[in-house]
Design a binder for these strands. Sequence first.
DNA 1: GGGTTAACCTTTTTT
DNA 2: AGGTTAACCC
Length: 719
Amino acid sequence: MDVSHLFNELNETQREAVSAGPGPLLVLAGAGSGKTRVLTHRVAWLVQALSVSPLSILAVTFTNKAANEMRGRIEQMLGYPVRGMWMGTFHGLSHRLLRTHWQEAGLKQSFDILDSDDQLRVIRRVLKDLDLDEGYWPPRQVQWFINGHKEEGRRTEHLPQQHDVQQVQMQRVYKAYEEACRRFGVVDFGELLLRAFELLQNHEPLREHYQRRFQHVLVDEFQDTNSIQYRWLNVLAEAHNNIVAVGDDDQSIYGWRGARVENILRFESDYPGTRVVRLEQNYRSTSMILNAANAVIDHNQSRLGKKLWTDGEAGEKIKLYTAFNEVDEARFVVDRAQAWVGTGQPRQSIAILYRSNAQSRVFEEILLDMGIPYRVYGGLRFFERSEIKDALAYLRLLADRESDPAFERVVNVPSRGIGNRTLDAIRGHARHSEQSLWAAGLSLCTGGGLSARATTAVTQFMQLIDELDRKSAHLSLSERTNVVIRRSGLIEHFRKEKGEKGEARIENLEELVNAAGNFNHDADEGVDELLSFLSHAALEAGEGQAEDWEDCVQLMSLHSAKGLEFPLVFLCGLEEGLFPHQRSLQEPGRLEEERRLCYVGMTRAMRSLYVTYAESRRLHGRDLYTSPSRFLREIPSELVEEVRSAVLTRPLPAMLANQSPVGSGSAAMKLGARVRHAKFGDGMVLNLEGQGGHARVQVNFERAGSKWLVLAYANLETI
DNA sequence: GGGTTAACCTTTTTT
DNA sequence: AGGTTAACCC
């Protein structure tokens, strides 16, 4: 087959990567160098030029979004849907393996997936059972401990003997947690990966089967893989070594959650004969932006070394704005964004990026004020909302009465008089007789182990579930969901909730009915549709907000911005302690990760990049006086242009008007002061700089416009 | 069992 | 500051 079309739109190094012969290939792909393009073309090339069957290709990504995008682009290129090609996230593919081989994996068929929220609940439960005080054993810390070990592939039996009381206790909790998960038949995110890995590792026939099947393994965002993900890949690729890893060490920003950049270094030694291709030509940004980003990342010691270049235009300098405070910063940004939109650019071409999500608030307020549509990324996603999880818990109980987490979640939602006393009795009985809460509840109700009132309440709850099941069993998934949210009393429950919150929850529940209707279940491995939907909900939490296609300014954290690009980018809050973040300054190595984050942020910009910082910032209800981020100093000054606010027509906040007077001779000038000039007339002080005889002041004159004047000669009169 | 107040915590996030 | 969660009282 003629495959020249695959190469037409590629440069030389990209071609080299796409058409490299079999064997290990490491593609070090700088920001904006066409990484996804290489990956998708590589797959198309395997299929069209080498006649590789899509069935024998496995492509792994980190997010569902990336996986879907890749699939779409490949199908577009090939011109037909590639069913049978395994393409998805590490978690999604692990899940698929475990569903198929649940017996070999030692799971129950209807095993449930815990998201981090559910995981925390189970941990709380375990701490309680062990009689440990949450004050001394913060559940989050326990969660971090457990996940950290799972990411490294360590189960409790692999942990070294400890003498430190703290450690011993932690290990005890980990052990009890594992035991609880086994009892409940639940699997957390880390467990999905670890267990799938162990499945392949320990079951030779299965391993050989999948090794034979997946003749070609491809990974995206390789710098983000953690230990267990790397081993997961190895076990599949070790038989044939046909593995393509694409990544960028300079964009490794997930070290804090277990990602190991070292995997990139290990790759070459683990796969002798690895061909390394560097993609260094950038197609995204102007050379000004690229040079600035290169200069910043150059301050990192541990790098594989890569220098992005572009043959595109130089473009504008990086614009630096020093704001008085976070409100001024936001005003400036929004003002410039509006000006950009005024030139006919879509709002979607603008991104406001920040280090931490808390920073979005001020921007939102001002955008709202100005009536500019915006969208904030991050935050609660659809399937993570509590009302949705309540409804899903009911559905789970329909599919599996023995699910303790689901039972706990909704026995008393809406409240039906089953309180802690009753629940404790059921829990105790369940523990002793080693059965599920459902079974324990049943036996207590018939055996008379509960008060008459409690017995009625619990019996009614169980009858409700049985009845829901019976009456909805023959219905479609969405009708079934509809019946459940109504007859369970959930809708009624939230209707009573005061305020708009309850309404929103009801809307979300209705939306869940739609989501169930839109869910297309590929009845492949004979998995029940309902169970499949529940897994889907856990694995793909859905977008943060209902997808509205209005043209919006984009607000997001630097982490969420990875992989995206925008013509105009505002990188905000470049202050020591905020970015780089305070907590990164303590731990070694973290500062370099912060710098990579800065690099990621800068390289999102295509045409225009603004960096801003505030001299004072209100954070956690306290005013901080900040100093500019070290990253700002790392940008060569010849690439930077300092800009001043052009729109200080509104009065300055009182606090600012009273501070930093530049004392020189007679008149002490203050920001925001009204002044009169013999020739220019009246105006307002916008800016002050310098000391003594060199002090200069910027005044916005009503008639003459904005001017810089040397204070000593200007003879300004304050009015 | 439900509602109200008091203490707490706050980087980044996907699965 | 703001939101969530835990203890506390009715």
